[in-house]
């Protein structure tokens, strides 16, 4: 593998997103939402203003779990199929570059743009809140930021896989939206349904592991287990055994969710 080729492709993708202000727009969305949640999240209870980092993070997790997968899928779904449709894919592949280098470069460039927006958007809020937070709370917040980046990377990996498999951009966008529905909306309902139908008799032990089969759930578990106060607010994830809730272990699962779709995409792209 030649790193220079990967860097060239990645650099183009990243700077494209900087130049067309994609990074700026997404970072602003994150900042505005995070600030709104931090200061007005308790408005229903009649109190306006910053309450606690736990509740802020818990609310942000609920928001981010919808938003980041969607942004990542939209960002990456046409990475390869878009080039194919415009006719530039053959030109890129006629260069002294392997298909894996092209795919990896695309992924890393887009991942860089997404990670940069996430860190900049939420990081700005951390700076605003810094004076009101203790060191531990800040640590939690950084944990949230890091897990948000990982969540984005995992769904971006799925998006790039879609972009390799799809025959055209329209189908790719359909597949991307379907993945979002499945992992973000349907997956937990299916598990819950299965649990209810079987009255919890079957699969009670494997149930927690099934949660690992969804990067969005892994993200949720990663965040709520760090927050004693809000753990009970989350239905499904609370059944997750504490022994498995090691951040490093969940982090590894997340890395697996980044690597596996990319590996499948590479296999398919080479065919």
């Amino acid at each position: 593998m030649e790193i220079a080729q990967v860097a060239t492709i990645a650099g183009k993708e990243f700077w494209d997103r900087i130049r067309n202000r994609w990074v700026l727009a997404v970072a602003l969305v994150f900042t505005v939402f995070a600030l709104a949640i931090a200061y007005f999240g308790g408005a229903q209870q009649g109190a306006v203003g910053f309450r606690s980092i736990e509740f802020t993070i818990a609310s942000l997790v609920s928001l981010v779990i919808y938003l980041i997968p969607l942004i990542a899928l939209v960002l990456g779904f046409d990475a390869i199929v878009g080039e194919r449709e415009r006719g530039s894919l053959d030109l890129l592949l006629s260069m002294p570059i392997t298909r894996f280098e092209l795919l990896l470069g695309k992924y890393l460039g887009l991942a860089g743009a997404l990670a940069f927006s996430t860190v900049a958007g939420f990081g700005l809020v951390a700076l605003v809140l810094a004076t009101q937070l203790e060191f531990n709370a800040l640590l939690h917040y950084f944990g949230f930021m890091l897990s948000s980046v990982l969540l984005g990377m995992a769904f971006l990996s799925l998006a790039v896989m879609v972009s390799v498999f799809a025959a055209d951009r329209t189908r790719a966008s359909g597949m991307a939206i379907a993945l979002w529905f499945f992992f973000v909306l349907v997956f937990d309902l299916l598990l819950l349904g299965a649990l209810v139908v079987t009255s919890g008799q079957y699969g009670g032990e494997i149930f927690p592991y099934l949660l690992l089969a969804n990067p969005a759930d892994v993200f949720r578990i990663l965040n709520i287990f760090a927050l004693e106060d809000v753990r009970t607010l989350y239905g499904l994830a609370t059944v997750f055994p504490a022994a498995l809730a090691e951040p490093w272990l969940l982090g590894l699962v997340m890395l697996g969710w980044i690597a596996a779709p990319l590996a499948i995409a590479t296999w398919r792209f080479r065919k």
Binding site: D16, S88, S94
Partner: peptide
């Protein structure tokens, strides 16, 4: 590849 130049049909550049 380094010895070859290619112009695809109807290419759309960036």
């Amino acid at each position: 590849r380094r010895r070859v130049g290619y112009l695809p049909e109807n290419v759309v550049l960036y």
